[in-house]
Design a binder for these strands. Structure first.
Length: 700
DNA sequence: GAACCCTCATCTCG
DNA sequence: CCGAGATGAGGGTT
């Protein structure tokens, strides 16, 4: 693979290594910008193929015992996609007969079927509010009746009462129908709360060994505050949720309206036709509890629910054609789209799961299988064509990792030549360029002198790993008494400055307060973008708050002026904390918990002094991260000691959950206008290519 | 391993 | 008979 063109991969030497030479000019976001269309859902919901057969089919319950409804055995190896032996789709004439023109749109979200029952969630909201009140969270805003009795929400979409529709900034309409911004906001609030609750839990004495569920607590608070969106159930696309989006908790699916059941795998709604009501499936979660067949990328064999399979001390039984199973059956006949969420093991954190929204599917057939004498329903889901890859991307990555198929366009399997514990691949699948320009890989900062603090500084005295609740640990104290990371190493809050344990501290290297010093944890890839030169992305899913990498390079001494002489002027690889960075909010809102001082959770950086780093000649993966005006990564100053001297570092963390193969970006900020040389600062600005809806057009 | 939470279905009461 | 509220069942998750 590597013998080829361009450069030689020479064995790594531990000393100064100039061998990792990649000799092409760097390029970093310099092309003209074509702003993307606003973030509409990435695909249109087109009917999968051709016109459907019309007319009636005789009522076709597969509940009529297994007779002719073949088990897949006798058709297993035939082509899966076209015309199965399943029932003919019944057109949806029963609904909106007056104006349902074609079948196609009728059930895919264009026209909305009536929703029966569950007129709203307020009842539950109140119940929960009451429940919470007796618990410790008494501070939630009261859920009010935000809908007058008798006003159907469909009939009266406009906000009614003047102020009645706002709780924590989300209007009733927004709670019904979301948007990308809203979904992101809700998810970020959820996770910020969750992290904070974990932090509180971590800090408790071990004696209270009760396992708490911060995810449930967080969602509880959101739900009872009305901080959620897409509450209105719907078939098809959920506004603001995109194919490929990932989630780490079932509750996240709930609060954004992707899948309302907190546990159940099948979510459905009652749809009212002219004559009768029937349940139709809107979404399913396949998470491995049943033996679903998820080998194929576009096909999913899904098992019905119930029957006590896999549960201990419960008698297995036949599954019944009711609830979710019934809804799936009806959806098969109605051929409506069903959202599919695939859950799988999180490779980074094996005890938990990742859920990938894999877009819309249709149910193509169903049958009954027998397992240990009991009947199980099986449903064959087939993915609608034309949607962006989601689960399939995961499958590919899995193959790359197993070495079964190598990455297309792979130039180097590890451009760090072992300098990092996790390899970083170098890939170009868009053109012939063989790699970025020469630089030396180095995984941290090169300081020419120490970072002077007024007060002398020393590490802690812990002799094992520092404990979150330990007030004798000076490192914890320096962080305001709050451990900056959760037990699985996720950053809780942005802060003016984070104090980690350093080489001076006697605590073990596995101390949780050294997150930014432990090297890369996710498998990154430097890749050629189509219009921004080289960029950075990850093979692994990344949780919000995950440490990604630090900005490595040579610290520039301001006194000496511009290092590197003339070239300093157009050094594209400078990181400067003195730039102007737009403020943004990442932390939990203290009002949602019983916490007073919001000043304590300031997100403004406060540095002992400015830090300028150049990664032009020496650097790590960070130098490839491009700018975006709506980034998914932010930087955070981190301080730790070495030989009684403090050193400042810049650590990058994920703003939100980042699906695999999504480009990682952060906000480069802009040079202040007070820069020496007047308008030279302006000249240095570059056109932005981030394409986000709130793009500032220039950066740098 | 235990302690959870959301929705739907059904029941009760006015 | 209807709607509002209460209660129970169901389904896995972390």
């Amino acid at each position: 693979m590597e013998g080829g063109s361009g450069f030689n991969s020479v064995p790594p030497s531990n000393s100064f290594d100039k061998s990792r030479v990649l000799d092409v000019k760097p390029l970093r976001s310099l092309k003209p910008v074509f702003p993307n269309a606003p973030s509409t859902p990435p695909f249109v919901c087109a009917p999968p193929h051709g016109p459907f057969p019309s007319g009636f089919t005789p009522f076709y319950p597969f509940s009529t015992p297994q007779g002719s409804q073949a088990s897949p055995d006798n058709q297993q190896n035939t082509t899966p996609v076209q015309m199965p032996m399943g029932p003919t789709p019944t057109p949806l004439r029963a609904f909106r007969s007056s104006q349902a023109p074609e079948f196609s749109g009728a059930f895919n979200g264009d026209t909305e079927p009536e929703v029966g029952g569950n007129e709203d969630g307020h009842v539950d909201g109140q119940k929960r509010a009451a429940r919470n009140a007796r618990g410790s969270n008494s501070s939630q805003k009261k859920t009010r009746k935000n809908q007058e009795p008798g006003s159907s929400r469909r009939a009266a979409p406009a906000p009614k009462g003047p102020s009645a529709n706002f709780v924590v900034g989300i209007s009733q309409i927004e709670r019904d129908d979301g948007s990308r911004e809203l979904v992101n906001h809700v998810l970020m609030t959820f996770d910020a709360l969750r992290r904070r609750l974990s932090q509180i839990e971590d800090a408790k004495e071990q004696s209270t060994g009760i396992i708490k569920r911060p995810d449930l607590k967080a969602s509880n608070i959101l739900m009872s505050s009305g901080l959620r969106t897409n509450m209105k159930k719907r078939i098809g696309v959920v506004p603001g949720v995109e194919v490929g989006d990932i989630f780490f908790f079932r509750m996240e699916l709930c609060v954004v309206g992707l899948h309302a059941q907190s546990m159940g795998g099948i979510d459905y709604m009652i749809v009212r036709g002219d004559t009768e009501e029937e349940p139709l499936a809107v979404s399913i979660v396949s998470s491995g509890g049943y033996d679903d067949d998820a080998e194929d990328r576009d096909v999913l064999i899904y098992s019905g629910q119930g029957g006590n399979f896999g549960k201990k001390d419960k008698q297995a039984a036949d599954q019944k054609l009711e609830r979710g199973n019934l809804a799936l059956e009806r959806s098969l006949r109605r051929t409506n789209d069903v959202r599919v969420i695939r859950g799988m093991k999180d490779s980074v954190n094996p005890t938990s799961k990742v859920y990938v929204y894999d877009g819309l599917y249709k149910i193509q057939e169903s049958w009954i299988e027998s397992k240990t004498g009991c009947n199980i329903f099986k449903y064959k889901f087939v993915r609608l064509p034309g949607q962006p890859g989601a689960f399939s991307v995961w499958k590919s990555i899995q193959k790359w990792k197993e070495g079964i198929s190598s990455r297309v366009g792979l130039i180097l399997p590890d451009l760090t030549s072992g300098a990092e514990s996790t390899p970083v691949s170098l890939v170009n699948d868009v053109d012939e360029e063989k790699g970025p320009a020469y630089f030396t890989y180095f995984s941290t900062l090169k300081y020419s002198k120490s970072f002077n603090l007024a007060q002398p500084s020393f590490g802690c005295n812990c002799h094992n790993a520092c404990q979150p609740g330990d007030h004798n640990c000076s490192c914890v104290t320096k962080n305001g008494g709050k451990f900056p990371y959760t037990s699985n190493g996720i950053l809780v809050s942005r802060k003016p400055l984070i104090y980690e344990c350093g080489p001076t501290c006697p605590c073990f290297p596995n101390c949780k307060n050294r997150v930014s010093q432990t090297g890369l944890k996710v498998h990154l890839e430097v890749f050629k973008t189509t219009d921004k030169g080289w960029g950075l992305r990850s093979w692994d899913p990344i949780r919000a708050g995950t440490f990604i990498c630090e900005y490595a390079g040579e610290v520039i001494d301001k006194v000496k002026g511009k290092q590197g002489g003339e070239e300093g002027d157009n050094d594209e690889y400078v990181f400067d904390t003195a730039r102007v960075y737009g403020s943004f909010k990442w932390n939990y809102e203290p009002g949602l918990l019983d916490e007073e001082s919001s000043s304590e959770s300031s997100e403004e950086y406060k540095l002992p002094s400015d830090l300028i780093i150049s990664a032009k000649n020496v650097g790590n993966v960070s130098r490839f991260m491009n700018h975006s005006c709506s980034p998914n990564v932010f930087w955070q100053p981190v301080l730790y000691e070495h030989n009684s001297q403090s050193f400042l570092h810049i650590a990058f963390f994920a703003i939100r959950h980042i699906p695999p193969m999504t480009e990682l970006t952060y906000d480069y900020g802009s040079a202040g206008s007070d820069e020496v040389g007047g308008n030279s600062a302006l000249n240095k600005k570059k056109k932005c290519l981030c394409g986000s809806s709130n793009c500032r057009a220039y950066f740098g």
